[in-house]
Amino acid sequence: MIADPAPIADRAAFGASARRTIDEIVRLGFTHVIAIPDSESRLLCEAAAAHERLSYLTPCREGEGIAIAAGLWVGGAKPLLVIQNTGLMEAGDALRGCGIGPRVPLQMLIGWRGYAGASQGKQPVDSAYPYTEPILDAWQIPYEHLMSNDDIGVIASMDEQANRTSKPAAVITGWKFQP
């Protein structure tokens, strides 16, 4: 049983800049952004789609995206997945099969649906918020939080950890991306 979330006042912030986040993604050498857009990641996805050094793909579901990303990695590219926590839950078999089992360093920016309300002490509208971190913990996928421009360095940390361990790693984004 997952407990109701407590307010998270110390993580309160207003979201990272989509432009600065994409600049960091490009600096780190990512070649493809594979995204299932949601309302929080809209500006990030628009910035990725517009960037001349990134190929941007939007598959129909997250499991597809994970398998495409694994194929890209095997072929020598460096993909980044942008998905919501709900999609992560849908894509469990693909993540297990294409990432965790074969030790493919898949990297994911995961939108944390429900965080914004919970951080203000409201009960979450559904179970997506409280299950997100426990699921990543259960799959032994390391993660950090991207809540503002001050945190953009966590993307480099994810990249370093994924490549060093040759395992999937994630960054959870708690707030809507800003311009």
Partner: peptide, 19 residues
């Protein structure tokens, strides 16, 4: 086999895009 049910062609597409 065992890399994710239903996703062989998605994986193949990623490979083809990369190469």
């Amino acid at each position: 086999l065992a890399f994710g049910m239903g996703h062989a062609s998605d994986f193949g597409m990623g490979l083809a895009l990369a190469r």
